[in-house]
Nucleic acid binder design. Sequence first.
DNA 1: CGAAATTATGTTGATTTTGTGAAAATCACT
DNA 2: AGTGATTTTCACAAAATCAACATAATTTCG
Lengths: 232, 232
Amino acid sequence: MERLKILVVDDESRMRKLVRDFLVKNNFDVVEAGDGEAALDLFFADKDIALVVLDVMMPKMDGWQVCREIRAYSRVPIIMLTARTDEQDELQGFQLGVDEYIAKPFSPKILVARIEAILRRTNQYNGEEILSCGGIKIDRTAHQVWIDGEAIDLSYKEFELLTYFVENKGIALSREKILNSVWDYDYFGDARTIDTHVKKLRSKMGEKGNLIKTIWGMGYKLEESEDGKPER
Amino acid sequence: MERLKILVVDDESRMRKLVRDFLVKNNFDVVEAGDGEAALDLFFADKDIALVVLDVMMPKMDGWQVCREIRAYSRVPIIMLTARTDEQDELQGFQLGVDEYIAKPFSPKILVARIEAILRRTNQYNGEEILSCGGIKIDRTAHQVWIDGEAIDLSYKEFELLTYFVENKGIALSREKILNSVWDYDYFGDARTIDTHVKKLRSKMGEKGNLIKTIWGMGYKLEESEDGKPER
DNA sequence: CGAAATTATGTTGATTTTGTGAAAATCACT
DNA sequence: AGTGATTTTCACAAAATCAACATAATTTCG
């Protein structure tokens, strides 16, 4: 599958970098614009932009206006980044043809998940809806997890964390890394909170709980399979 | 692959030298700056700096400020050197677009590993993720070692030490050298500690343990293969 | 061979890191 | 505002690691 190109529009370069880094890591191409005009120029010059991520709050031309102008000529999927709370906006946005909202601050993981979901909906992307690994099965749209065929209940964070583990199975993950992708980008708190979630995950996962290995002095890792650990 | 250029910014010349020496040994080009202003001058004068290593604590302009100014114009990867403990800082830095943190004191080996990982992520560098040597296989991302296909558990230090041996297979390594790259730069303890770790490594490695040769009066060496040693 | 130097090994205590349960804070919904 | 669920923090227990040391074994070299 060729890499899909995403246009990211935000006046803050840090936010652009955040979004870009995460998208690139997830195999998308990214083009950026720092204001509405540049965004429109880029969008109409470049015929193969698969999706647009648009900050609402921008000086000069705001996100709504950019959205309106794009919609006058194109049905490309548009995701809006908004400040929490504003429900009024959502209404306005849906009338304008916005496909999805993401409230700031969001977790990078959620951003990517939403983008992939939309692209999947529009048949431009066929990533997996169902993840699985050593008896763990995850349905992302249904937000449901099965262990050896048995459905288990997980809270939101637990689900996100387990999904992240499965997406990165076999890779040693530092707490730092986990925080930076599963938690909102402005989360400032104790990395040990991860331990608590891991504890709950392990217990809810029953026998399969020990697929989540502790890497002492480093972090955690989801083992791809149970075997390969004979001695000790 | 041409040599990549790294800008090292720290007010302590001792630290700059430490970092420089290690990077040069690992085939990077290094330019140094002793304060924030010099760093910015150098950075904007020199168009092909591939990565910046930045100490947080500096007189006059601190690391955050330097980071901000660089980020206003560039997305070059930035690694911050911080005092242990300060988690608050990490949040701030993340918003500024810092790519990685390394807590002082660090081991030179870790510094190089992180730098290479980031450059790999940004596709500027294609070193190996998997090392191997005479039946020993090391997956750095998984933090996992196999001996003849069997996974073995190693502690953090043991893993670092074995990786160092494999990276330098066939080369005689003095205890001094080993300490200076695998241990934190402020460790001034007994070099005999290495012996203890070598002992544990050898025993965990089973038969392959004797690939780690003692070089009497000198240090240790990892043999590239078991056979082919008729003389001696 | 034997003494001196060096390395191997087993043990131990201090330190660091992780596990765990419970309390506190936050959030979602009514 | 009130309730229950979720998330985070905290404190202490448990576990793992690490450095150091003492003693045994090995190598070197006179």
